[in-house]
């Protein structure tokens, strides 16, 4: 169970981390991981599916404002929020959810959690990088970007999760 203000604090930390630090680490033109989608991935199981889409859209729009990309992040996060229930069905097979429980290593198991994070990241990055170039020219570069960054973002997201989302025992 995560209270709503803990979600808000994590949201602010992650957005600042993304726009002020990660977007400025420019090792290689191919590499730019996006970790802010973690917030959408760890919202509670029982959240209303329609409001989830709106949250995804708003969240992407905030990142857009900071990175001058006008709807690019928003399009990708809206898609992620739309398919999230299907991803959860895939990775977490139990029928009933406790109130306020959220996708976590404790509930899903380590492997299933990694699979869930990777699939979510892949959906987001796939739509994001395709929309960014807006064409199928030089598709091999785009697909390299998608795969490379999906792996990298997943690793960063799981690291942040392990540090930031310790549950109380």
């Amino acid at each position: 169970m995560i209270s709503i203000h803990r979600y808000l604090i994590h949201t602010i930390i992650i957005i600042l981390l993304q726009v002020l630090i990660i977007n400025n680490i420019q090792v290689n033109p191919l590499i730019n991981p996006y970790i802010y989608i973690l917030i959408i991935l760890v919202l509670p199981f029982k959240i209303n599916k329609t409001s989830l889409i709106f949250i995804g859209f708003l969240f992407g729009l905030i990142v857009d404002i900071f990175s001058d990309t006008y709807g690019l992040h928003a399009a990708a996060t809206t898609l992620l929020a739309y398919v999230r229930p299907n991803l959860i069905n895939l990775a977490y097979t139990k029928d009933s959810f406790e109130d306020g429980s959220y996708p976590s290593i404790r509930l899903m198991g380590f492997l299933m959690f990694i699979l869930y994070i990777f699939l979510g990241t892949f959906v987001h990055h796939f739509s994001f990088f395709l929309l960014e170039v807006f064409s199928f020219n030089s598709f091999h570069i785009t697909i390299t970007k998608i795969l490379l960054n999906s792996v990298l973002s997943s690793i960063c997201i799981i690291l942040y999760y392990l540090i930031g989302f310790k549950h109380k025992r």
């Binding site: 889409i53 709106f54 859209f57 006008y70 709807g71 399009a75 809206t78 898609l79």
Partner: peptide
């Protein structure tokens, strides 16, 4: 279909912003 319709509308808004850009 409301979830799907809302999804499509929001994506269209995104695309509109993107193309204007």
């Amino acid at each position: 279909l409301q979830r799907f319709i809302i999804f499509i509308i929001l994506e269209l808004i995104c695309l509109y912003l993107l193309i204007q850009n």
